[in-house]
């Protein structure tokens, strides 16, 4: 029990990094998801192929590879130091899950029933209005559970930033473990509990999203 009281505040020092990386990379991922998802439905073949390339590259390789690659490549290719590894982590996680989520966006838009777009045409809506007023609101409902699931994946993914020296929860766990090897079981168990506590609201939101997505859409 004493050990827990000792270890918990130590790990909590990493909370800030874990949470900010998660929030920033989630925002980037959602942004990329909608941009790339819509681009893949574009009528312009060049835009479609280009985003297809982005999606396949990021889905086809591992997050950990991308993280290290960007860690070394960003300073070299762009001749800039981002100033911190925080950005490297955010960009890697955001681009990676943005690629996965763009498929969710694309699939949801495609799965809104064809009759919906026809009804909107019959009401003389423009292409943009059909998308904004009819297709999109329904597609977004369908996306919610997958967005929830992938956000949990992103939370798990944030643990990788400890590998590039970011001081997140796992980083402090590693420090504690190396200072006292016999404490390792309790340290890592608490690290896991920490992540699980962070995941709980996301799990709850995902289940809520599942309920919402079940009503209010016409698909097929």
């Amino acid at each position: 029990m004493n050990a827990i009281i000792e270890i918990f505040p130590q790990l909590a020092r990493g909370l800030h990094v874990t949470i900010t990386v998660l929030l920033a990379s989630a925002i980037l991922a959602y942004l990329m998801a909608f941009i790339a998802g819509l681009c893949r439905l574009s009528q312009n073949i060049f835009i479609r192929k280009f985003t297809g390339f982005y999606v396949e590259v990021f889905r086809g390789t591992s997050l950990i590879v991308q993280l290290f690659w960007l860690y070394y490549a960003i300073p070299m290719l762009f001749g800039i130091q981002l100033g911190s590894n925080w950005w490297t982590g955010v960009i890697a996680i955001g681009l990676n899950y943005g690629a996965y989520l763009s498929e969710v966006v694309r699939g949801s838009i495609l799965s809104v029933a064809k009759g919906q777009s026809e009804a909107a045409t019959a009401l003389n809506m423009s292409r943009f209005q059909r998308m904004r007023l009819v297709i999109f609101p329904q597609a977004v409902r369908m996306m919610l559970p997958e967005f929830g699931n992938y956000t949990i994946q992103m939370l798990k993914g944030t643990s990788l930033v400890s590998l590039i020296g970011m001081t997140d929860i796992l980083y402090y766990g590693d420090i504690l473990r190396s200072s006292n090897l016999s404490q390792a079981p309790i340290v890592y168990l608490l690290v896991l509990v920490f992540y699980f506590i962070l995941a709980l609201p996301l799990i709850w939101l995902t289940r809520k999203g599942e309920r919402i997505s079940k009503k209010g859409v016409a698909n097929g």
């Binding site: 019959a122 609101p137 329904q138 016409a218």
Partner: peptide
Amino acid sequence: VRGDIGMVFQHFNLFPH
């Protein structure tokens, strides 16, 4: 041109949201 035309469908196609 189609602004003057309206249509009712076999499967209603109401907007469920």
